[in-house]
Nucleic acid binder design. Structure first.
Length: 270
DNA sequence: CATCAGGCGAGAC
DNA sequence: GTCTCGCCTGAT
């Protein structure tokens, strides 16, 4: 067990922020997560978060995964005080963090996310993992499924992918898995590229457009200047920033602010 | 029954 | 380059 105190860490907000589709509430206000081939349970009371893992695993894996070295307090404090909308959105989203998630998993997850809702995105991914992912047992005896490898999905039939509820995205997943498996797109190189180069490379994948590429850059490659524009963000941009969002002021924190805006727009009054 | 969900590719121009 | 259109599926 590892306990931390951090007023800029919120399990429920991270869960609902729409970047991680394999984290969900379980019994007793606890949360469970399957990521990086591992299973983790955690719970939160106020600012205290307890992770069910050893200190060694926490330091080696989860500290980086949850981006615990980044100063989110400072980022929120740096929001323009005259920008009432952004001040409100950032404060509302305090606790959200940009996770360092697996690249291949994010590629597939955000291809699935297009023209889709979070509830069904989770369902699609769950079915993909249960059908194709390696079955494992956690330290506390919970059975879980790892995210399927590129090779596995490259070998899956279109009919079987359809059966996971992916719909017209099935062919995107299939062809993209082939591209990665055969080395046409090298995932290892993506991590060493800058934002522009990584985005351009991701756009070569069938089913990956500008918005999905930005999500992958932000949530897997930690390119925090990526600013994914979806229907929610476009709506807010039109209403709050008719002259354009001040990217020049926020630079590499733009993507983090995007998450606050997205979460605020998605969940307020719901 | 129509519309919409964190878009994208293909084709027309 | 920009625009339009069709698309799986499930919830409302």
């Amino acid at each position: 067990m590892v306990t931390i105190e951090d007023k800029n860490f919120s399990l429920p907000k991270i869960c609902d922020s729409g970047q991680c589709f394999r984290m969900e509430p379980c019994s007793g206000g606890r949360y469970r997560l399957v990521a990086l081939g591992r299973y983790l349970e955690a719970e939160q009371e106020g600012d205290r978060i307890t992770f069910d893992c050893t200190q060694e695993e926490f330091d080696l894996v989860w500290k980086d995964y949850f981006d615990l070295s980044t100063d989110y307090e400072g980022i929120i404090a740096g929001v323009d005080k005259d920008d009432a909308y952004l001040v409100t959105a950032a404060e509302y989203g305090r606790g959200i963090r940009i996770l360092n998630q697996d690249l291949w998993e994010m590629i597939v997850s955000f291809i699935i996310s297009q023209q889709n809702n979070i509830r069904r995105i989770r369902k699609c991914i769950r079915q993909l993992c249960e059908r194709y992912g390696e079955r494992r047992t956690s330290g506390n005896g919970t059975v879980y499924h790892d995210f399927p490898a590129p090779e596995t999905l490259a070998c899956a039939s279109l009919d079987d992918l359809y059966a996971c509820g992916l719909g017209y995205r099935s062919k995107y997943i299939s062809r993209t898995a082939h591209s990665v498996h055969c080395g046409e797109v090298d995932l290892g190189k993506l991590g060493r590229m800058d934002y522009d180069a990584a985005k351009k490379e991701l756009l070569r994948l069938y089913g990956v457009g500008v918005k999905v590429a930005d999500c992958i850059c932000l949530f897997a490659l930690h390119q925090t200047d990526a600013f994914p524009r979806d229907t929610h963000i476009n709506k807010v941009m039109a209403a709050q920033y008719p002259g354009g969002f001040p990217f020049e002021r926020y630079g590499k924190y733009s993507g983090i602010l995007q998450q606050y805006i997205f979460y605020y727009d998605l969940t307020e009054n719901k």
